[in-house]
């Protein structure tokens, strides 16, 4: 028991990224504080901590909520290095945010120097069905392209406003990370292995 506690206490660093104004903070705050905030303040950087049981196993999540604006991209790679799992958010009502998803995932691969990494793509704001311009199939297609070489990538549609799938998206990300760690992904999937050793 004591062993499992000490093991589970180690926090999981989740980094939430995505374009500006897609609802990263709303999603994070809905998950960590169970509230939908109507503020429209651009985030620079916020962090939240939450402990929960996922599949009967304790998990402590350190969630880093980041800025979507391009002004803050200089910080992007710094926090990407620290992240163990990534939640890439876009808004189904915003085509540009969706177009950024792919480049963000590529950036994760590059910064992490891995071809596979736990990445959850969240299509947010699906309560705004009338303004929707990104179909589910379009997003699925994108994720499937990544799944060909990164099995730890998935897509979920969410609504921070109605709390639809908010818990699921974070929990599934933790599940992906556990899977990734169980398969020894952190050691095996290194892109450029030193051939001398």
């Amino acid at each position: 028991m004591s062993k499992s506690v000490s093991k589970s206490v180690k926090p999981i660093k989740i980094v939430v990224i995505g374009s500006g104004g897609v609802g990263k903070s709303a999603l994070t705050l809905q998950f960590s504080k169970s509230k939908f905030f109507l503020d429209y303040d651009p985030t620079i950087e916020d962090s939240f901590s939450k402990s929960c049981y996922i599949d009967n196993e304790m998990a402590r999540l350190d969630i880093l909520d980041t800025a979507g604006q391009e002004e803050f991209t200089s910080m992007r790679e710094q926090y990407m290095r620290l992240g163990q799992a990534f939640l890439v958010v876009f808004s189904v009502t915003d085509r540009k945010g969706f177009e950024e998803v792919d480049s963000l995932i590529q950036l994760i691969y590059r910064v992490k120097d891995r071809e596979a990494f736990p990445i959850m793509v969240a299509g947010n704001k699906i309560d705004l069905q009338n303004d929707r311009c990104i179909d589910q199939s379009l997003a699925q297609e994108l994720v499937q392209r990544h799944q060909e070489f990164n099995p730890y990538c998935a897509y979920i549609e969410t609504s921070a406003k109605t709390r639809l799938n908010v818990d699921l998206v974070f929990h599934d990300l933790v599940r992906l990370l556990r899977l990734y760690n169980a398969k020894g992904g952190s050691k095996q999937a290194k892109k450029s292995k030193c051939s001398l050793l």
Partner: peptide, 10 residues
């Protein structure tokens, strides 16, 4: 809404 906050298309 979100003028200067929402990123433009690259």
């Amino acid at each position: 809404e979100g003028l200067f906050r929402v990123n433009g298309n690259n």
